[in-house]
């Protein structure tokens, strides 16, 4: 049944993609040709448009996910979704999984778009892949500077990529589900916005509190020619207090010397962010089982 729910969502997404994909493809193609063959002005305009399109692609798909979440679960279509013979947790997981598939699809499209944009300049010069190679060499030298293996870096990026989706989903699913709940039954679409404001406020406060109370820091230490990153148990605040707040405008090297060869950054707010994802998962799933449709 979960598979069928996901398939249902994917059909809805495919309908939305029918518009997005050709438009984006056209943007890329025009950038590739116009800029590729160095047409003045038009080439730059096409390139910039394609760049904007690429930057908007993932946010747009996330927004479409929000729209689908609302429509399928809380608009008139909710009357169907909530009377299909599936459990509330299947409904929830269906939205979560289909949303992540769409996010992945958008990411792949955006990556392909970036690659195309990198190629545009090289076409006229006959060196199509030159820029891409330069990009990877740059990445390599950054990794060497940070003393990170490419595997670890890939894993980290993947983690960040996933957390971006999960925290977005955690936020909007909770805001919509709680905001469309009984408490806000007379507020229409205002409910989700009020919950959003509340959640943002609480997250801000929790971020500050967590900085003071959660002993987890990212330590950036000098190591040979580069730096080394390490996660340590300890308050970043302690080092901050030891160093005092002498000068706000320090260079990185001055900061390192002052800190005794390292600087700590508190990770409390990241812990809070992850905790929110977990909280939203259980809370929203539960709330979804007790809908009060209007």
């Amino acid at each position: 049944m979960l598979r069928k729910l996901i398939a249902l969502d994917m059909r809805a997404f495919a309908r939305q993609l029918q518009w997005i994909a050709p438009i984006y493809g056209l943007l890329l193609l025009s950038a590739l040709l116009l800029r590729g063959f160095n047409l003045p002005v038009v080439g730059v305009v096409a390139y910039v448009l394609a760049l904007i399109g690429t930057a908007l692609l993932i946010p747009a798909v996330l927004v479409l996910g929000i729209v689908r979440y609302y429509r399928h679960l809380y608009s008139h279509q909710g009357y169907l979704t909530h009377t299909l013979p599936v459990t509330a947790s299947q409904r929830y997981h269906g939205k979560l999984i289909s949303g992540s598939i769409m996010y992945a699809a958008a990411t792949l499209m955006a990556l392909a778009g970036v690659a195309v944009l990198m190629m545009t300049k090289g076409i006229a010069r006959g060196d199509v892949f030159g820029k891409i190679l330069v990009f990877f060499r740059g990445v390599e030298s950054i990794l060497a500077y940070l003393n990170i293996s490419s595997f670890a870096a890939a894993l980290f990026l993947l983690g960040v990529w996933l957390v971006i989706f999960l925290s977005t989903f955690a936020l909007y699913s909770l805001c919509i589900t709680a905001g469309m709940g009984r408490l806000f039954s007379r507020m229409g679409m205002g409910g989700p916005f009020i919950v959003y404001l509340l959640v943002t406020l609480i997250n801000q406060v929790a971020g500050v509190v967590s900085f003071l109370l959660i002993p987890l820091s990212l330590r950036i230490a000098v190591a040979g020619d580069g730096i080394r990153l390490k996660i340590v148990v300890g308050f970043a605040l302690r080092q901050l207090l030891e160093m005092g707040f002498k000068n706000q405008q320090m260079t990185f090297d001055e900061l390192m010397t002052l800190g005794g060869g390292y600087v700590d950054f508190g990770l409390g707010s990241i812990v809070i962010g992850l905790a929110f994802i977990v909280f939203s998962y259980f809370f929203t799933k539960r709330q979804l089982a007790k809908v009060n449709l209007r």
Partner: peptide, 17 residues
């Protein structure tokens, strides 16, 4: 919520897209 397979439901307004 455990009986949806037993009921065929026509809502007051449409529930289809």
């Amino acid at each position: 919520r455990e009986a949806h397979h037993l009921i065929s439901y026509l809502p007051e307004n449409t529930y289809l897209g």
